[in-house]
Design a protein around this nucleic acid. Sequence first.
DNA 1: CATCGTGATGTCAGTCAATGACATCACTGA
DNA 2: TCAGTGATGTCATTGACTGACATCACGATG
Lengths: 185, 185
Amino acid sequence: MGRWEPDAAGRLREAAMALYAERGFDGTTVADIADRAGVTARTFFRHFTDKREVLFAGSELLEQSMVKALADAPADAGPMEAVAAAVLASAEFFDDIPRDYSRRRQDLINATPELRERELMKMAALTSALTKGLLERGVAADVAPLAAETGVAVFRVSFERWISAPDGEPIADVIRSTLKTLKTL
Amino acid sequence: MGRWEPDAAGRLREAAMALYAERGFDGTTVADIADRAGVTARTFFRHFTDKREVLFAGSELLEQSMVKALADAPADAGPMEAVAAAVLASAEFFDDIPRDYSRRRQDLINATPELRERELMKMAALTSALTKGLLERGVAADVAPLAAETGVAVFRVSFERWISAPDGEPIADVIRSTLKTLKTL
DNA sequence: CATCGTGATGTCAGTCAATGACATCACTGA
DNA sequence: TCAGTGATGTCATTGACTGACATCACGATG
């Protein structure tokens, strides 16, 4: 065994989730979280830039995988096809974490303005990453932002639906269904 | 003359704008702002809930006027027509403030992640207010959010364009032009 | 005209998020 | 065996924000 328990970041994330749920975001101090994780508050800030970010660690991975899928889409695919591929790629990401975790996390976010703010920021970052990816695919400058925004909207709606869908429903199916609905508009 | 200089909130807003521009958001303390406005930091927090909000005071008015225009639109107007009326109503709001002020304010927001976060939150609030207004007009539940989101997008794009448009260009014209472009999609 | 309430502000003390500087020490590789 | 490294702890400090209480010009009231 090493000098310290491994995976301090993971323990901090779990502790934060639990405490935010128990006492609310405002009722929880960073020291509380650190205590429960068996580290000091200073260590918390070595792993997460702030008290909000602890619930959003890993979002870079999601963004990266979506951008990669966008780049990997066939060269002759249209903008919306490429975006659809990107959104579908997010499914892979969520397959690795229990859906119940996603649900509890989202409940916290929805209940806490500070966390909602941060989530909006992540979505905006995702939108501009996708926009950039589309531009690199040669998509016209007036189309790219629109397609990206639409893609993020599909992602959001699908995620929300998946979270409250019957158990066992794969998120990929929900996304495909959302994309199909979109086409009817 | 009263016991205190009038319009403390206004002075605080101007002081904040100036200091954020001079030293950046992070380089400015609330005490700095309060000093320049001739009050104490405690008074700052009596007028604004936090250091970010000082640049967003008045956004409720914008939201209210848009929601009102939405409600006042002819009963037989479709969802997008009503939304267009709401967005156009925002022009009235901006007619009362110098465009240069809007520009400087937006530059600050674009340069500061914390302020961008807050702005996204305001836009999200606007979206849900418009959604609610549409639902009250009897718009279908699956159409309302989409129409609202589109309206806010039009607003954002128009505002951005107006800010960098030649001087004297009325924002209402820019909005009309954006709406026209939208129709071509 | 004396008094009283009120509202906007000041003062003070305290909590807590966040950061920088420096110390520690198990583990690793030469 | 020993120097270097990385993850953590410790300590001190700044600054955002809050609650409790004091102040005092002004306006209303009797």
